[in-house]
Write a protein that binds this DNA or RNA. Sequence first.
DNA 1: AATGAATGAGGTTTCATTCAT
DNA 2: TATGAATGAAACCTCATTCAT
Lengths: 206, 206, 206, 206
Amino acid sequence: MTDNGRVPTTTPRPHPGRRTELLATAASVFAEHGYSATTVRRIADEAGILAGSLYYHFDSKESMLDEILSAFLDELWAGYDAVLAAGLAPRETLRALVTESFREIDRHRAAVAIYQREARHLAGHPRFGYLAASQERFERMWLKVLRRGVAEHAFRADLDVRLAYRFLRDTVWVAASWYRPDGTHGPEEIAEQYLSIVLEGIALRE
Amino acid sequence: MTDNGRVPTTTPRPHPGRRTELLATAASVFAEHGYSATTVRRIADEAGILAGSLYYHFDSKESMLDEILSAFLDELWAGYDAVLAAGLAPRETLRALVTESFREIDRHRAAVAIYQREARHLAGHPRFGYLAASQERFERMWLKVLRRGVAEHAFRADLDVRLAYRFLRDTVWVAASWYRPDGTHGPEEIAEQYLSIVLEGIALRE
Amino acid sequence: MTDNGRVPTTTPRPHPGRRTELLATAASVFAEHGYSATTVRRIADEAGILAGSLYYHFDSKESMLDEILSAFLDELWAGYDAVLAAGLAPRETLRALVTESFREIDRHRAAVAIYQREARHLAGHPRFGYLAASQERFERMWLKVLRRGVAEHAFRADLDVRLAYRFLRDTVWVAASWYRPDGTHGPEEIAEQYLSIVLEGIALRE
Amino acid sequence: MTDNGRVPTTTPRPHPGRRTELLATAASVFAEHGYSATTVRRIADEAGILAGSLYYHFDSKESMLDEILSAFLDELWAGYDAVLAAGLAPRETLRALVTESFREIDRHRAAVAIYQREARHLAGHPRFGYLAASQERFERMWLKVLRRGVAEHAFRADLDVRLAYRFLRDTVWVAASWYRPDGTHGPEEIAEQYLSIVLEGIALRE
DNA sequence: AATGAATGAGGTTTCATTCAT
DNA sequence: TATGAATGAAACCTCATTCAT
């Protein structure tokens, strides 16, 4: 057990299946080129097999996407739920949620990048209805935290909570597009710096 | 009304630019569905012509994308250059750059959205080398402003300028994905609220 | 009147029409790239107009080809008929026919090249039935000359006339693909050298 | 009949080369209709598959052409090189080269016909640079043989070697357009008759 | 005579998917 | 599990042709 609970995803575990490896490959290609610009053949090439062989493991290209996104969201919400269940004060809740988000980026960078790029467009399809549901839940969660924070004088009274919500949402997830974990900073450190800007601003206080 | 039979120039001239119209159509479809998921036929449908007819005006789907992005970047940099030429103090420069960015989002929402989604992926292609160039110039510009601001005590001394740069960059452009100008707030007002968060933070100051 | 009756085709006569100029342009493009690889736009470009404008002058691309080929064949047969009407001996008839052929190559190089390339393929189409007719007439003409020449001891008794016919036919017309009149030799001189090889062979006689 | 259940190897093996079959089909269609008038669908029809299926085997229509021509030229030069390596006298070298050429026509009729029709036009494209190279090598080879023949009194002293070269070149290859091997004469016999005309001429010797 | 814009048919190519082996 | 070959739909693009101006 490591002290931060991180398990590098590159370690191939005993063998929960070729599927998992292939999904990781698919996710990384989707993340790099976008879902619709990614050909099934490209994924197969990257995995060292032929395109047709993927269909032994998956129904379709879409179902790979589906598995990637739903697995990611499941984990994400498990993390969020744990935070929310802790019953912290607004400011601490916000810190914990942001930190948890950066941990998810660290673990599922590819999935987060795919989510960022494709969610709006996919949310319309019935198969991906859970994306829209998740977005709404996400929004409710943040608005609630922010409103409580304003009410309890943790956040500025003049805060436009809807704007702040979008600000936080974008700010956090877009990081997936540049954050590379090989660096010296772990997700918690990055989160800390983000929070410093979000909470205190960049201007010098007089 | 004129005595030489010429129609007043305010009347829509023979075609100040069918191209321009078609590019706007293309941009809005690219923005909505993503470049590679957009079919040329969809653009044509939206424009009320047949798919093949687009090729009277453009070489290829890719060249439409190219024109959209390069026209946008040209305008964007014209705006930025005007701001930089004004020689304002760091804090005011930052305000002006952010405000200018929101104005560009207002004018070229589709182009900005496309840029957001596709730039990283495109920057590799030789044809889109100017995207990479623009990104570097963008980074240099922001880092310079932020560093000067720290040096001149406009911004916090402990600011991680690289992180703040990414923060600003993402924060500003991602707004293109949700900002809708039909609302009551113009780009300047949105910019003002963003700046308030970025500069002062969301936490209540004691 | 020149002493060989040649009129350079590049001289634009008083104005028998834009048609003639355009046909010359079309012929040269067809000759260079082949009929089906030639686009109507290419012809128009070469002529300095837009593709659609060609249709003011011609019904179709095919009708341009038709005019080019039929004009060529008309002139060719006028020349051959004059030779045949002269009632020369076989050997002199052959010389005259070959010489006349080289003159036609000189005047209608493009048309000859087109004919070479496309005749076999076109002869099937009803519209180009005259090509097949011309080919048959051509064959009959040559076989007659050769047979008479054998009978009258002008040509070798062991000559395979069908093979010799093909040999002559190919040999003469293929010259259109390399013969360039800018050189120092006129068509009559080239013909003379060809005839020397055809009649006497290249081997040294002991 | 074998005791290990394996089908005797004379039975069409799994696929010694579907590619090769398809190339033969493509070559025959290209030869008949010309490269650019040939549709990929026509080739596929002739092969009994769908047009798209060709792209499992080949990159493009152009790459089929490329393979056909380069395979042909490789074989052709292997044959010529064997002849040249034999170190025969000029007259015998010429006989052997012409005979070898007719053998190639016999084996690769389609490729030769395509070469005849398209080489000049293609030699410009970078991809087909080897065509130009081959043409130059061809020319050097023939000029050398002819010049040696003149010097060694095998051929007429007054021979215009450049003209004779073109004459031979055209004469030999154009035969591909009419020569059909189903006939009673093999390529060697046709070559013999050609050589008789080329060497001795058609005129009766007094 | 010529332009500018479009049509519509059809061409080449791509690609997710299938399936016998 | 995976391959090799193919399908079939649809994508991008080309091009001869039309037509109002």
